[in-house]
Nucleic acid binder design. Structure first.
Lengths: 378, 378
DNA sequence: CGATTTAGGCAAGAGCCCTTACTAGACTGT
DNA sequence: ACAGTCTAGTAAGGGCTCTTGCCTAAATCG
């Protein structure tokens, strides 16, 4: 609506941004190379490089060009530009990384957790990983992106317990836990949402603008991608499909999660699905396994039909411990093809999609942080 | 990702855009007033006004300032800047308007249609209205925005018939019909989506970023607003909820539209809902009306629960001929409040929301068309 | 009737980017 | 060994845009 005010300062900032972004996608470049990449003239690039070097954002790497012609000087992002923390919390443990603005993983950490470990242990693991990575990386942890295997409140970044959904990780406040170790903002989202983003970036939904990612594991979740973005909804709880009405084993309308209760497929004293038993029963030979597959496929198809009605995806991606089982994917695809508005169904392909998705976002965040800092400094 | 290349041309374009936008929100301004509004200095504004006047985009209105000080010259958008066509097609007729870049409705047209009129009559009415308005308006119809009371294919702009959904307007290709009368692009969307946008702009969902608009009329529709935008999905069929599974009168899972068949509330030989009968039966006194309200509220609640699970709105707006009946809104709100994830339910407030929403978009479109034309010309 | 107020014009100045031309240094081929 | 070639970086000059500051013309106010 309101266009920005034109000013020479803005032009200069744009030049600096071009230079910085060029050096984010390439590890080191001479001024002439930057000019060639950006299409900006050599003298202008020289000015910008001088400014950014003086501001401490760029540094002469000491390397020199070899080959014909005059010797060129290589520049790169300053080594103390800092890194971004990426962390994924699941009931099995915390995986964390420090990535730099090039997208390179500089350090990794893994702290396993057991089923009996409570939220306190998870919190300690997350804070510990952050402290560890912070100390092992030059520069600061300038931002953090966290994936959690539970619903996340969009405004606070805290994990929330929903009725009838298993609380896999438990009460946790990542922004508060990471605040001592991370200088900037902490972005938290659901593992399913991150997985969907990763599949869109470089997985089986590459470049697809509208699709639905259905996660079928211990918990039941779903990510809705619309117009190229994961849509989180007001509280960040979009895709929490535990009590979506679907078709139960006896044809009555039933909450999705209750289907598993009715089938005796939940862990005792929990609403988490017993995936091992489920897979075992599913892949067994015989009529009973076939009937289970049908019942599950009908229930899943009901959920997918709702997602299609409301969000009109061009494809469905199914992930999760038991969702990627060929027996499930095939039976669901078969049932779903018979609905009034069928859509292609595919199994997810990435091995650690949540961490991948979070990492991509962390790099973007770190980069724009650096660019913005340059804009303010000058 | 790739920042724009810095150039002086870009600065000039930005100045021109500032000037044009100032004169879009104000009918006429002196150069000094433009400078005050935009924060850009007077000499720069003078230059820009001169450029734009020479290009024919601005014109001296002939009016002069009165009051203390030197007499100022008022400038305004050139009178031949053109208008945008806004049209809404329903089974009852075509309503069309020509709006200018200020958002002022310059001309109106209304061509009524009867139930027996087929799609040919509707097509003729639309083309006729466009021709009429085009001839009555100075300058050309530079773009068109159309609302249709049927699902719309997002890529082609054509109306599409979905299984089990009533085809209220019928086979129609607005972009092709309007091409002879409109210079630029023709944007078509569903009336429900436009209504949702209007309620978000200046209705009961003012400024709300995430909500669901449920339309309950002859047809059943729904608009999903997420992150401040209506999300149309891949084909533009997001929100077509006719066969979402919900709870039927006998507790079995049933497509939403089939609930009305089971209740005998459809027009004969059609899947359209007989709204008159429905409202009559609904508002009658006695146990039977109460039971009907309950059955309908449960079915609607099922649909809303699905929308909440998948899109996490912060509120629900119910519109449509029978959806806005207080008896319905109240009963639905009551039932819905008892679900695991309740959300406030409100009745829609605008009287012609589809046309309102389309008009707002048409003005935006016309404005950016003018700004872009200025950028290319110079 | 002089003081005040206000729109607009003019001139000077600073800043940004570009083109052109040049320099320094290293490789290449005879 | 040496002239020719090639390339990174610099210097100079010019064009353009925006801003500040000052001035003028014209109308109102006290």
């Amino acid at each position: 609506m309101a266009p920005p005010k034109p000013s020479l300062e803005m032009l200069r900032g744009l030049t600096d941004e071009n230079v910085l972004r060029a050096l984010m996608t390439h590890p080191r470049l001479t001024r002439a190379e930057i000019a060639a990449h950006t299409g900006i003239s050599k003298p202008t690039i020289s000015d910008s490089v001088q400014r950014l070097t003086a501001a401490g954002l760029l540094a002469d790497t000491g390397e020199r060009t070899a080959g014909r012609g005059r010797v060129g000087t290589y520049y790169a992002l300053a080594p103390d530009t800092g890194t971004a923390l990426v962390a994924a919390i699941t009931p099995y443990g915390v995986r964390a990384e420090a990535v730099d603005a090039h997208g390179t993983v500089r350090e990794q950490a893994h702290i396993p957790l057991g089923r009996s470990d409570g939220p306190e242990r998870a919190a300690a693991a997350l804070a510990g990983a952050a402290a560890d990575l912070g100390s092992r990386t030059p520069g600061a942890l300038r931002t953090a992106v966290v994936s959690a295997a539970d619903p996340v409140d969009r405004t606070t970044g805290r994990l929330v317990q929903l009725p009838d959904a298993p609380f896999l990780v438990g009460e946790l406040d990542p922004p508060a836990l990471l605040a001592p170790h991370v200088r900037g903002t902490v972005l938290v989202d659901n593992d399913v949402n991150w997985a969907a983003r990763a599949e869109r970036d470089h997985g089986c939904a590459a470049g697809v603008d509208d699709f639905v990612y259905l996660h079928l594991g211990q918990g039941l979740g779903c990510a809705v991608v619309n117009d190229g973005q994961v849509r989180r909804g007001h509280h960040g709880l979009a895709g929490e499909i535990a009590h979506l009405y679907t078709v139960g084993p006896d044809d009555t309308a039933m909450h999705f999660t209750d289907v598993f209760a009715a089938l005796g497929l939940r862990h005792p004293h929990s609403t988490a699905i017993d995936t091992d038993t489920l897979v075992a029963r599913l892949t067994a030979a015989g009529e009973q396994a076939r009937r289970l597959r049908t019942v599950l496929a009908r229930a899943v198809t009901g959920v997918l039909a709702a997602a299609v009605s409301l969000t009109d995806p061009s494809m469905i991606v199914i992930g999760g411990e038991w969702g990627t089982q060929p027996a499930i994917t095939a039976t669901v695809a078969e049932h779903f093809a018979r609905t009034p508005r069928p859509v292609p169904v595919t199994a997810a392909v990435l091995t650690s999609p949540a961490l991948d998705g979070a990492r991509t976002r962390a790099v973007e965040e770190l980069r724009s942080l650096i660019v913005r800092a340059a804009g303010r400094r000058n």
